[in-house]
Amino acid sequence: MSIAVEPPSRFRAEPRTANRLLAAVSAVDFERIKDRLEFVPLVRGQVLFEPGDDVTVTYFPAHRTMVSMLVVTRDGHEIEAATIGREGAVGGIVSAGDKPAFGRAVVRTAGSAFAMPTVALETAKCASPTFGELFSRYADTLIAQMMQSIACNALHSVEERCGRWLLAAHDRAGEQIIQLTQEALAEMLGVQRTTVTAVIRDLEAQGAVRRQRGAVAIIDRQALERLSCECYRAVEDHFATMLPEVVL
């Protein structure tokens, strides 16, 4: 498999410390897939697949890397259905390897990932009930996140939705500063950039965040949780119930 140009050695990472889902795989099952994993760099804005594409590669984001799963309308508008970071995987998970892709997968926070052929992942699931069960539980949490996003987009204010996304990103980034432009955040929330600018300014005035060039810093996590809707906690609680060994 040739997925990308081999990155410099200084960017290398160990799969089971860089990605929590891989860390939860048993030692025996990890032996089944370790030779099929390839370390690849991902840049911000990189499209991993488009609607209708064959999903031939599964990506396991490493460290602070985050990928958005987007629903794309006929006129080109897009809105985020799920955020995936080092707790999970992108491609061929919910569909159990069936193709083609329904949505678009875009890298939101640059970094790296471990990639493997989706067919190899399906082979490992069939070979080991415990491996398959782990990924079935992860698929459940991913569907739950998408279902909650539907409710959130329909019922909650932009400020609440923005707070929810920043909390989820904060968990996955593992650091105070989230590398994300306001334009990208507006695209994910399905609103104008000016709307997001006003929301971030308001969150900053309330001491929850601080604007930076091309990034947002989380200043007061508890304040941000108060300003967010219940969707963040609902998704995280379900994740903790279904995959306690993967919780960030």
Rank of each mutant, 00 (worst) to 15 (best):
A24P: 10
E50Y: 04
R12V: 00
R16Y: 01
V25A: 08
A18R: 12
L48T: 02
K34H: 09
D35G: 07
F39D: 13
L48Q: 04
I33T: 08
P15V: 02
E6D: 14
P51Q: 05
R32T: 08
A24N: 06
P41D: 04
P8L: 11
F39S: 14
F30I: 06
L48S: 06
R16T: 14
A18I: 05
R44H: 09
L22C: 12
F49C: 11
A24H: 08
L22N: 00
R12C: 04
A23V: 00
P51D: 04
D29I: 03
S26V: 06
L21W: 05
E38L: 05
A18W: 03
E38N: 09
F11P: 09
S26E: 09
E50D: 10
D35C: 02
R10I: 07
V43A: 15
F49K: 07
E14V: 14
R32C: 00
F49G: 01
E6V: 09
G52D: 03
L37E: 00
P41A: 07
P41G: 08
Q46Y: 05
F11S: 13
L22E: 01
K34A: 08
D35M: 03
E50S: 14
S26M: 12
E38Y: 09
R16C: 05
R16H: 01
P15T: 06
K34N: 11
T17C: 10
I33W: 04
F11C: 13
